[in-house]
């Protein structure tokens, strides 16, 4: 075993929790609404900054309170995006690509709105909100098991990831609402004809997805040592890669994607560095390789339908 490997394993599990929290709602929102949503990055950032503003301005150290507020604010933003931008565009017959581009516009707008908010907060408090240090919360324990320290972020990440998986499972599998959401995901037109209130359920899906990602953002503030208004942007590659591994459809495969990406970024790079001398600065490259491989191998999101898909299709046509 390479020296310090225990910490690498802990980091792998920690990152897997984060990628699950961020990617499962992405998959659910795409599956239901068919919008490739770049504002997802802002959901992470706005969740983190809800906690940061609460901590920096009013001194809040409760993660539960910050999470609740972040859930409501970001969930609300997600619904507003749908009501004011996505739905009107879809009603006018815009293509999915056009809706995706509109989400890119929102992504940039939200980023600069946040920069303005940090400037305003700085003006009144003289505190630096453009880069904020880690928050130590009063209502989350850290654990020590034997020789291993499990930080607040690990405990909070584990709790949040398990809770989100359970809630999504219960909602989607055990409730009428969940069955209705799945019906919309499978065939929206048919679901609507069957009397399912499509608009209401899509808004509800946005609210749940935005809110869940925001809680992940709050947890991130207990993990990272410097949080900036770009935090969601710098994770979007990993989050989308994780989602693409699940084809933006399967929640189970998205979970597997989170494990794969987290292991590549932690265990993979540690082994490559220790045994082959590959610099750790290659870590983002590994994620990119995984993304490209996924796009090529897995249809329908792969390039031109994915090579094996085209190959199999050609064979089946013969």
């Amino acid at each position: 075993m390479i020296p310090g490997f225990v910490q690498t394993i802990i980091n792998f599990v920690q990152y897997a929790f984060f990628y699950m929290i961020f990617s499962l709602p992405l998959t659910l929102s795409y599956r239901t609404t068919k919008v490739i949503n770049f504002v997802h990055a802002n959901f992470i950032t706005y969740g983190a900054y809800t906690a940061i503003f609460l901590n920096g301005i009013v001194g809040n150290t409760s993660m539960a309170f910050a999470s609740l507020l972040a859930f409501l604010i970001v969930g609300g933003i997600a619904v507003l995006n749908n009501l004011l931008v996505f739905t009107p565009l879809q009603k006018r017959g815009s293509s999915p690509a056009m809706v995706m581009i509109s989400s890119m516009g929102l992504w940039i707008a939200y980023k600069y709105i946040l920069y303005m908010l940090t400037d305003i907060a700085h003006f009144y408090t003289y505190k630096n909100f453009v880069s904020y240090g880690r928050i130590t919360y009063s209502d989350i324990p850290s654990l020590r098991i034997g020789e291993v320290n499990l930080s607040q972020a690990f405990v909070a990440g584990m709790f949040t990831a398990i809770t989100i998986i359970l809630i999504l499972y219960l909602i989607l599998e055990k409730t009428r609402m969940g069955r209705a959401i799945r019906a919309i995901a499978d065939n929206a037109m048919l679901a609507e004809v069957s009397g399912i209130p499509r608009g209401l359920l899509i808004n509800l899906t946005w609210f749940i997805c935005g809110g869940m990602v925001a809680i992940g953002g709050v947890v991130w503030t207990s993990f990272s040592g410097a949080i900036t208004p770009e935090v969601g942007d710098s994770m979007i590659l990993q989050v989308f890669t994780t989602g693409f591994i699940g084809g933006l459809v399967s929640l189970l495969r998205t979970g597997a994607g989170a494990l794969l990406i987290a292991s590549m970024e932690n265990i993979g790079i540690a082994l490559l560095n220790a045994y082959l001398g590959i610099p750790v600065s290659f870590r983002p490259f590994l994620t990119f390789v995984t993304l490209i491989t996924t796009l090529i191998l897995f249809p329908p999101l792969g390039a031109g339908g994915g090579l094996p898909y085209r190959f199999l299709k050609r064979r089946s046509e013969k």
Binding site: I2, N11, Y15, V231, S234, N266, A270, V280
Partner: peptide
């Protein structure tokens, strides 16, 4: 010498490799 890529959201993985290098 151990370099790290800039512009990442977090450096936990890089720090774990640093610890490994220090120990080895």
């Amino acid at each position: 010498k151990l370099s790290y890529q800039t512009g990442l959201a977090d450096y936990a993985s890089e720090v774990a490799t640093l610890a490994s290098r220090v120990q080895s």
